[in-house]
Amino acid sequence: MKPFTYARPAVASEAVTTLAADPDARFLAGGTNLLDHLKLGVVEPSQLVDVSRVTGTAIEELADGGLRIDAGVPNSDLAADARVRERYPAVAAAILAGASGQLRNMASTGGNLLQRTRCAYFADPTTPCTKRDLSQGCSARGGWARYHAVLGTAADGCIATHPSDLAVALVALDAQVQVLGPDGARTIPIGEFHRLPGDDPTRDTVLAHGDLVTAVDLPATTPAVRNSTYRKVRDRASYAFALVSAAVALEVADGTVVDVRIALGGVAHKPWRATTAEATLRGRPATDDEFRAAIAAELDAAAPVDSPLGGNAFKIPLVTGTVVSTLRALAGGAA
């Protein structure tokens, strides 16, 4: 680990100014991902700007019936908040499906959204990685690709997945991310917050250097969102990243899908909103066959990778099974 200096600003604006002035500086919040990367040599910042005492830790009601979650709210507190549990069960469930009790106590809401991929090649600076260095190729292709993306990838490009569980739920719920940047505050819809790799896989989000996530706003809940959950499929029963996950919200009336939201984790460079599946399902009977047809339509564009060390074609039936069984459970007896 290369040496760095440490700054602890008193207010958010000072943190943004300090960071913006140093192109090699990084914000430090919970540190659960950043410290890992510092030790691995994945990042080598000149300076850490500790924002753990400038981002708030409150969860407040918004006038429109939504909730504002300060970026500094620890994951565990967010999942435990009674309003979140009741009105946004997918959010609580997503957090609880991730990491461990200790890590959830440390990790912040803002930091959770900014986690970097757990791709083994990204985390190993001795192997080429186009996400670390645009001049290099993707080692996961042809390598250990079991955990990698099947949607939104480009030929020969990065096939990393986004590791956050929380972000998948937020994408399903159309949350808004509040950002303070060098030029002031702005709001970014969560669906536009994370990027597909495109021609610059080094960038996970649309944030610019110096942008600080200050809060996440949840819109007012709906009947579907109240009937939402998060289903995570992983090799180990706990303390493991997703092979595939799904944040699903469903409202069914008279056996017909009135409202549905589906976001997928573990399948793409960003949390994947399954808009095609949603559109296919709305107004259709809440049956297994309809669920299956809808997710099949979403997966039409999937491009799994083959590899002698483990490809990811199994994610196609896995996504299908995960989404169908989750929709079935949310539909209750309707399916």
Binding site: Y6, R8, G31, L35, L48, S52, Q102, N105, M106
Partner: peptide
């Protein structure tokens, strides 16, 4: 008072 991982915590913070 809360359980955390000391390996991913910077002392100075």
């Amino acid at each position: 008072g809360r359980r955390v991982l000391s390996c991913l915590t910077l002392a100075v913070a």
